[in-house]
Design a binder for these strands. Structure first.
Lengths: 187, 187
DNA sequence: ATTATCGTGTGATTTGAATCACACTTTTAA
DNA sequence: TTAAAAGTGTGATTCAAATCACACGATAAT
């Protein structure tokens, strides 16, 4: 559980009592390889903070093609946030790629902690700000760049993921076919 | 200035004194057609709340192609947020398409109001949450859909913009060529 | 140990959208 | 009021990436 405290204290500082209170809203869960933490159609009740392992957040289109919205590793939050924030049925899946542990909690937790502790609302705002900026960059990448540029950008941002996850999945993240991606670092 | 109060009070409520305080950090600016509110290379000092008019937030690639990241109308916030939050030089432009008025303030304002008034931090968190969800939807659209689907989705979300802004700009928002977009509603 | 299944490279073919090119209309500016 | 610029439709051509097809080694399952 100490990882949670460290994670939060990268942004704000908490007394022991405050942390104990915060902690009480989170539950630990082990994830095995290929295990699903969220299924399309489920109520998106939880958000997850990754302690270890690698996960993919993805959706499937009418032609059964998969698209990865996010890879998540240590210290990343993940959920189908569209569904989570609006408390609707999930349109996405979360699957464990490399085994590890996550903490999970609910929207109620987020709102309640934000209300009770100004500091925690600040924490969530900062996190959201970072996420917003990251998404903006992703939008720009998808709008204007060639497969080549997307691959290079990805390699720069996530050199370790490049090693740890199958190229096939990276293609699904970049919005490029497996074959095209393969030819990028061959030619 | 009453529009600012209304805008904020859609999320939280403020006393007169509180609002006066908040108000004091914002400055009114009229925008004429084709006027630039932000230029690439400028320090991204300001964020804008649109009171009236229509604006586009866009960037230009090495081949001089334009890509629109956001259209903004009444009650929308806009900036090059990547640059604004990190206080770096802007990589984007903001241009007025239809004349109107905006309010602007700084990152310092946002941080200070958030610190002074828990309610205001809540306000910004809620706004950020909404923006995050909207961007998530945009990413999904760019990742998986055909030009046809993007156009249909856009028509559903912003039927009024469809009337008010040149199709050429809509093409730049959707990441499709002008000609392809034109053929979508002809064929 | 032996079969499946998965991940990956690479060639051949197809295809959808970009690009190029031009006409026509509507705004905007001199 | 007249010329220039911007917005838009539509055809012909090009091209980059998707798709299809197959081979092969590495995992994973029985």
């Amino acid at each position: 559980m100490d990882k949670l405290r460290k994670h939060i204290e990268q942004v704000i500082s908490l007394t022991d009592a405050e942390f104990d209170h915060v902690k009480s809203f989170f539950t630990l869960k082990k994830a095995r390889k290929n295990q699903y933490l969220l299924n399309e159609g489920d109520e998106a009740k939880h958000e997850f903070l990754v302690l270890s392992g690698i996960y993919k957040v993805f959706y499937v289109d009418a032609q059964d093609r998969e698209y990865i919205v996010q890879f998540a590793r240590e210290n990343w939050w993940m959920s189908d946030y569209e569904a989570f924030f609006r408390q609707k049925a999930a349109g996405m899946y979360i699957e464990c790629i490399l085994p590890g542990e996550v903490l999970y909690s609910t929207l109620e937790t987020r709102e309640r902690l934000s209300k009770e502790l100004h500091k925690m609302e600040h924490f969530f705002r900062v996190k959201l700000t970072n996420g917003y900026v990251a998404q903006q960059q992703r939008i720009k990448l998808l709008l204007s760049s060639t497969p080549q540029q997307r691959y290079e950008e990805f390699s720069k941002l996530y050199p370790d993921l490049l090693q740890q996850v199958p190229k096939k999945l990276i293609a699904e993240y970049l919005g490029v076919s497996r074959e095209t991606l393969s030819r990028l670092y061959a030619g």
